[in-house]
Computed example of a mutant assay.
Amino acid sequence: MKISSIKCYTVDPGFRSRTWIFVKVSTDAGIHGWGEAYTLRGRDQAIVAQIGELGTACLDRSPFNIKHFTQVVQDDFAQRRNSFELYCAQSAIEQAMWDIVGKACGQPVYNLLGGKCRESVRVYANGWSDHCRTPDEYAKAAAAVVEKGFTAIKLSPLPGSWRTYVPREHEHHVVSVIRAVRDAVGPNVDILLDMLRRLNAGSASRLGRQLEPFDLYWYEEPCLAENVDALAEVRGKVGIPIVTGETLYGKAAFQPVLNARAADILNPDICNVGGILELKEIGAMAEPHYVAISPHNFNSTTVALNATVHAAAVMPNFTLTEYYLPFAEFANRICPTQLIPENGFIKLPDGPGLGLDLDESLLQQHAGFAGIAPALVSPAVER
């Protein structure tokens, strides 16, 4: 069985000016697989173009040779010159290859990765507070999402532009919001605070110490992940678990974080870290360091979520993963079989491959922008 074509769909979900990018990889045996790439406003067309170029590295190859494919991408195609767009493209194609392999074997992907460690995957709700501004608005929205059954919620209440040095009143606002949310949801709901890489180590440490009384589940990305020393400084001064990793691509980028003991939890994203196998290998790297894995998933609640669930199923040090609540309604149109949380957990799918399919007619109906040619040529030469 060989990969015969790649088709890329860009989809406008009508939310947050964001485009979803799906990749369909087909084979000469009539089996196809789906993958999803991470996207950012202003860079999605570059990601689509990279998917098109990357097709030269996988056409006419066996979809079973996934590890070899990722090696060829990094060593030969990119000549070890990495980029965000490259990792997004690799991630999407790699997921689709796993989907094909699972279908060909008649097994869910997690069975091919070593077997499941759990029957369900815990999720945290995100996106529920996107339109909140005041502490009272955050509190009411938090209570409403907990009423839906979620036992963990994430928010990013730091106001203003993304600047390294912020006014003290912005820090005070964050404390006021967290206090209101904790009062609204009670002591048994996990609150996850995301700082979006916005602060310097001093401000992050000062704010973190003020937040300690509210028993936060984590303090996500107080500083840039690339500044490992700053992260380690914050971790040493704040008694809240530190999270980082969504902006790191490939497992080598996580080694300095682990060596410096700069984080308690890593949150790589399956749609930009390199794919399912790369995420699993990062989990294995983190395990002997006693570092947990909580995959980031600011993607659709279709392909990306399924791929994340399969990877999470096989990692002993997995904790919970992201579920972006506002995306679910539109996602149900293109994928009525999408995974749905129940009481804060998603049951593992038991179908072959990733366990879902997308409606291509609806993908075309909701196209985001002109994508790549449906069939790529120039097959790669096997090594």
Rank of each mutant, 00 (worst) to 15 (best):
I3W: 04
P13K: 11
F15R: 13
R18G: 06
F22L: 15
V23W: 05
T27I: 04
A29Q: 10
G33M: 11
G33P: 00
W34N: 12
W34I: 07
R43N: 10
R43H: 14
Q50F: 03
G52W: 02
A57D: 05
R61N: 13
P63V: 05
F64K: 14
F69I: 06
V73M: 14
A78V: 06
R80K: 07
R80M: 13
N82Q: 05
F84R: 10
E85F: 10
L86P: 00
A92H: 01
I100P: 01
V101S: 09
A104Y: 06
V109H: 04
N111Y: 01
E119G: 10
S120G: 08
Y124E: 12
N126H: 01
G127V: 02
D136Q: 15
A141Q: 09
A142S: 15
A143S: 15
V146Q: 07
E147P: 00
T151S: 14
R163H: 13
V181Q: 08
A184L: 10
V189S: 00
L192Y: 03
L192V: 01
L193S: 00
D194E: 13
R197C: 10
R198F: 07
S205F: 00
S205C: 05
L207C: 03
R209W: 08
L216W: 01
E221G: 04
E221K: 03
D229I: 06
R235V: 04
G239N: 15
V243S: 08
T244K: 00
G250N: 08
L258A: 04
A260W: 02
A262V: 02
L266D: 02
C271S: 15
N272W: 02
G275W: 03
L277Q: 15
I282T: 03
A286K: 04
H289L: 10
Y290D: 09
I293W: 04
P316N: 07
T319I: 03
T321P: 09
Y323M: 14
P326R: 14
F330L: 08
T337K: 14
I340P: 00
K347Y: 04
L348V: 01
D350F: 02
D350P: 00
D350A: 10
G351F: 02
G355M: 12
L362M: 14
L363R: 03
L363S: 05
H366W: 14
H366T: 05
A367G: 12
F369N: 05
L376F: 01
P379W: 04
